[in-house]
């Protein structure tokens, strides 16, 4: 068991609160806090990347483990998360051994939509001397809607189990293997599509635009 580690959770969702990325990250930190007394920091990337990038790099340099939690945007990492990787590449103290783990979620139900982002993060780790610790690829992440995972009941039970497995791997210092990505689809595809599509309609109705949901405002004649 490793004692006295510094863990940095980087939240890559643009949402300042109630994001699925933060829900997953908080659960991991909670498990670690319950089992080991590691020092933990949490930073919201988008709040800092432009105005206070030093906040990110200083915390990253203090850390032994960086946990990067983010949503998939257009099949891969959001722009500000790519910018963060570039920032870390130039400013990380590479003489210190450090791990990288990712918690990725996508709004489509299938988990394979996360695969490109996983490969990019792994490649980044390899290129920058970070130990790749794998992580988790979540499908149907939209169902979590930023709630605390224990509050979601059975829907999040597999996700919580998987995150606990990740935490145990970290505590026991088990290096990840190629197949170390845990995949969790939070809701079955048919159910997710059906409830999601009803949900979009309901939200449009709430805002009085149910008749405009198919509008094409940018068509030029």
């Amino acid at each position: 068991m490793i004692k006295n580690r510094n863990v940095l959770l980087l939240i890559g969702s643009p949402k300042k609160s109630r994001s699925t990325s933060e829900s997953m990250g908080d659960y991991l930190l909670g498990v670690l806090k319950d089992k080991v007394d590691w020092h933990i920091e949490k930073i919201h990337i988008l709040t800092n990347i432009q105005e206070n990038p030093d906040t990110i790099t200083s915390a990253a340099n203090r850390s032994d483990l960086i946990v990067l939690a983010f949503p998939i945007y257009v099949d891969t990492l959001p722009s500000h998360v790519v910018r963060t990787l570039l920032l870390l590449e130039t400013r990380l103290d590479k003489s210190k051994e450090r791990d990288l783990m990712v918690l990725i979620n996508c709004g489509f139900p299938e988990t394979f939509h996360n695969d490109n982002a996983l490969k990019i993060c792994r490649y980044f780790a390899e290129q920058n001397g970070l130990n790749w610790r794998g992580g988790i690829a979540v499908g149907a992440g939209g169902a979590i809607i930023g709630k605390k995972l224990p509050d979601l009941g059975s829907m999040a039970s597999n996700l919580m189990k998987s995150i606990s497995i990740l935490a145990d791997r970290l505590i026991k210092d088990e290096m990840s293997q190629d197949d170390s990505i845990l995949r969790v689809q939070v809701v079955a595809t048919k159910m997710y599509n059906m409830t999601g599509n009803i949900g979009w309609q309901k939200q449009a109705q709430k805002h009085g635009v149910q008749d405009k949901i198919y509008d094409k405002p940018d068509v030029k004649s």
Partner: peptide, 22 residues
């Protein structure tokens, strides 16, 4: 950039979701 797009390009691509339906 690590096998992906640059953040300068990606900041635009992240904004194209209005072109699709939800």
């Amino acid at each position: 950039v690590y096998g992906g797009y640059s953040p300068e390009l990606k900041k635009v691509l992240d904004r194209i979701i209005p072109l699709m339906l939800p």
